[in-house]
């Protein structure tokens, strides 16, 4: 019933020339999305990946279990000295992420270009 979450990683550079891993999600983000969210993140090499962007452009539905997966990703990233930003959330999920406090640990931006400029 839940649409399967797909994810893939693109490697880009910030305007300052730093390498950035972009995790692009597509589909619902719910309790069934662990592999697509945490699995994709954990497959990134920690030694060389210091800046991470989460792309929610292709995501229509995120529930509290999905938000919990994003928080788990942020915990691991913080413990590994990585910086995380996100973009592409709808206005509603921008509000929800702000309400639960995620903005304290990950900047939210409307577009990839604006998010990259923050690195």
């Amino acid at each position: 019933m839940q649409s399967e979450t797909k994810s893939h990683v693109d490697q880009v550079k910030s305007p300052s020339g730093f390498p950035v891993a972009v995790l692009r999600f597509d589909g619902d983000i719910a309790s069934t999305s662990k592999d697509a969210v945490l699995g994709a993140y954990q497959a990134l090499p920690k030694e060389t990946t210091k800046l991470i962007l989460l792309d929610f452009t292709g995501v229509d539905y995120i529930n509290s279990s999905g938000i919990a997966l994003v928080i788990q990703l942020l915990i691991e990233a913080t413990n590994s000295g990585q910086k995380v930003c996100a973009f592409g959330l709808s206005a509603h999920f921008n509000k929800v992420f702000t309400m639960v406090g995620i903005t304290k640990y990950a900047g939210l931006f409307p577009t990839q270009a604006e998010a990259l400029a923050a690195f």
Binding site: N63, S64, A68, L69, I71, L74, I75, V96, V100, I102
Partner: peptide, 20 residues
Amino acid sequence: PDIDRKMHGEEDPRGMGMFL
């Protein structure tokens, strides 16, 4: 939910449904 407590492992990352 307290995001700082969640981030420091003092609170389950889940458990936000009723708050929302």
